Simulated assay, not measured.
Amino acid sequence: MESNKITGSIRNNIKIGSDVEIVQKHHQRSGELTEGTVKRILTKSPKHPHGIKVQLETGEVGRVKWVLA
């Protein structure tokens, strides 16, 4: 099931409870994505070129590549 994807580099696109795909620090080279639900938004700036950093409900932390709409 392919859904619409919104870029994760703009903070306003991400809300607590959003379903997202993130890249964790140790997966940056491979680009492996982890899917989950946003628990906390960690980046304060309105934009970040590599994605807004978030914590998922599972406790995993990474930069948002895609917000699943």
Score class of each variant (00 low, 15 high):
Glu2Leu: 14
Glu2Asn: 13
Ser3Tyr: 14
Thr7Phe: 13
Thr7Gln: 11
Gly8Trp: 08
Gly8Asn: 09
Ser9Tyr: 14
Ile10Lys: 13
Ile10Pro: 01
Ile10Gln: 11
Arg11Ser: 14
Asn12Thr: 14
Lys15Gly: 03
Lys15Trp: 06
Ile16Tyr: 09
Ile16Lys: 10
Ile16Met: 05
Gly17Arg: 02
Gly17Lys: 05
Ser18Trp: 10
Val20Gln: 03
Val20Met: 01
Glu21Leu: 07
Glu21Ile: 00
Glu21Tyr: 03
Ile22His: 00
Lys25Ser: 08
His26Trp: 11
His26Tyr: 11
His27Cys: 01
Gln28Glu: 12
Arg29Leu: 11
Ser30Asp: 06
Gly31Lys: 00
Gly31Glu: 02
Gly31Pro: 05
Glu32Cys: 00
Glu35Leu: 03
Glu35Lys: 13
Gly36Cys: 04
Thr37Arg: 10
Val38Cys: 04
Val38Leu: 06
Val38Met: 05
Arg40Asn: 15
Arg40Tyr: 15
Arg40Asp: 15
Thr43Asn: 05
Lys44Pro: 00
Pro49Ile: 15
Pro49Tyr: 11
Ile52Tyr: 04
Ile52Gln: 07
Lys53Ile: 15
Lys53Trp: 13
Val54Cys: 09
Val54Met: 07
Gln55Gly: 07
Gln55Ile: 12
Leu56Asp: 13
Thr58Glu: 09
Gly59Trp: 09
Glu60His: 06
Val61Gly: 05
Gly62Asn: 08
Gly62His: 08
Val64Tyr: 01
Val64His: 06
